[in-house]
Write a protein that binds this DNA or RNA. Sequence first.
DNA 1: TCCCTGCGGGAAAGGGCTTTCTTCGCGGTA
DNA 2: TACCGCGAAGAAAGCCCTTTCCCGCAGGGA
Lengths: 376, 376
Amino acid sequence: MATLSDVARRAGVSPATASRVINGSSKPVNDELRERVLQAVAELQYVPNAHAQLLARSHRTAVGVIVHDVSDPYFAEITRGLQRVATDQGRLLMICNSYRDPDRELEYVELLRGHQVAAIILAGSGYHNPDFTRLVNEKLAAYEATGGRVTVIGRHELSGDAVMPDNRTGGWLAGRELCELGHRAVGVIAGPRVLTTTTDRLAGLRDSLAEHGAGLPEHRIRYAEFDRDGGAAAMAALLDADPDLTAVVALNDSMAIGALALLRSRSVPVPQRVSVVGFDDMPISRDVTPALTTVRLPLVEMGARAMALALDEGAPAPRVEVLAAELVRRDSAGPAPELTPARVRTAATGAPTAARPRRASDRSRSSRPTAHPPAS
Amino acid sequence: MATLSDVARRAGVSPATASRVINGSSKPVNDELRERVLQAVAELQYVPNAHAQLLARSHRTAVGVIVHDVSDPYFAEITRGLQRVATDQGRLLMICNSYRDPDRELEYVELLRGHQVAAIILAGSGYHNPDFTRLVNEKLAAYEATGGRVTVIGRHELSGDAVMPDNRTGGWLAGRELCELGHRAVGVIAGPRVLTTTTDRLAGLRDSLAEHGAGLPEHRIRYAEFDRDGGAAAMAALLDADPDLTAVVALNDSMAIGALALLRSRSVPVPQRVSVVGFDDMPISRDVTPALTTVRLPLVEMGARAMALALDEGAPAPRVEVLAAELVRRDSAGPAPELTPARVRTAATGAPTAARPRRASDRSRSSRPTAHPPAS
DNA sequence: TCCCTGCGGGAAAGGGCTTTCTTCGCGGTA
DNA sequence: TACCGCGAAGAAAGCCCTTTCCCGCAGGGA
């Protein structure tokens, strides 16, 4: 591997001069020497050793990102936002998959610290696990103490700047939508209990169902893995336990798609017999059949905002940005089967509501709140 | 940021001893000193500077991966395979998205070279672009000359070890399936012309259609972006130009899903009026409606094999591993509408074929060839 | 008693680059 | 003619580790 001194020797100059030419230093260099150096670089196919550079230079340039799994559409979208801003600013991204393993997450924090990244961004759900939380916070604090910056996405249990999707209001919106469609027996396909995302979304949903007089008994909640197969399994369990269910909220779209698959395999018509509402609005959600009614989170923007926070040096106290959730109506949720459309009422107000016509798949309109969402 | 000498000083030992303790060197260290060092590490929250380590150590440990886009399911699956093997061997992965931009690809090769990775893996389609190909090959050669290893996935235009999906036979299988179902007017939703993946799959498909007496005139091929919207647009164009089309092959599943969406929006029943065959078998393909008949590529295994090749030091000449494609029958392809099932024939043999019953979504069986696929 | 061996620890030499500090040569001024 | 200042190039000091080499010491055999 050619080194800088190889280049310098070949060009007949000192390494200092070669370095100045290669890095476009502000110090002026004679044109002839410059030419000789560039020639030598080309001939030797010289590429600077990045580690030596990072060691010699003072300022850190790369940014570390820890996500559950980039290939999960939720994180893929967030990562897209992160990338965009990072690339704009000429930053290199180091992406690490924790696969929802707290230990691995801890390891990655250290790894990134060791790699001298300018900032660490943790995206994904937090854990209900005080010991682990304390441990991560300690490590992050140590990192911040040496000038590192920390930004979290959707993890209120960790310190540092934060970008928070409004999971709670999102859950609330899903509940309101179903209640307004006349559903009273609503089941929930929830993610793992230990994830704060699960509990936040669930809390909003529970509030909303309660407000609209529907209620959410514990036996109508099934906790499962946050993926397609988890959703299918939970849907099956829910249906077996409570055949009268008229609607289901899945706490993310992957699970909703699994639920749809299960319902199809049992020939349960959606939404005529059972309505399904998802969460996240992954890109594929509009392309399944029926197209998924879901709660949209501005994933790309969350990533972009997080990176912006992370790179914005001169920030004082930890900042928190909350990004709103929004209901996207498609075809998987419809009026509850027992009620004829004309009798659908808004439970909270008691006012009669005109039945909504079936909508075309992609004319998703955002919801206009008719009651105030909870503070999250 | 605490350094090794800080630790050593605090523990009252030399940096050499501290290093030995921290790295579990084979050289024995007195238990008391060891204890003091570990204590100092904990107190200072010391993490070794990875760049300094890489500079000081001789052996390279990280592996670089260049893909078009990790969040694309095709690459997500491949990456999963890469990760698995890399993690097993304790290697760190640096993943770079080229977003199908040749220049960016070139940049990343240099970047990875600069980061002293042990191997570079390029995944994705090659480009029909001799200048660019020569340039990349030069850079890769320079890298290999200094002991780096290069492995490509699905790019026969580049040198180095290679893992090749059998795109050509895959295309051939798609064609045969449709011909055996009685289709004669088959359209193609192709990816960008410059990608070798497009041309390889197309070539196999063309052969197969020709063999079965169907033919593929140029006006039945539409080139578009390799994504959902590209697929939808191409489907629209195809339908407008040739309303008699009874089947369509999309050269990847994303495009097929776009095509399905467009057909649905125009109320064209699939497969009763138009059959659709995809390519790749992404995980979501079984969950769309109708479930997608597609050509399966062992994506995860491709990644795993590629990483194995890259990490297998003592290899002589460039090795090439071809992984087979396989047809997965689901619900999006059915008999051609003009023919009643009883009259469906295998065009090549003229022998009557029993109509296949409609199959359940997920009982996807692999194809059993009835004729020999082309050598690819 | 002396020498050799082996063991545990430290000194120091890199590894490849950046950057400050020095030096050198030149033109201009007193 | 002597001196100063300035511009451009080089020398060298790090950046933070790893690892070789070396040294001192203790124990065992002759």
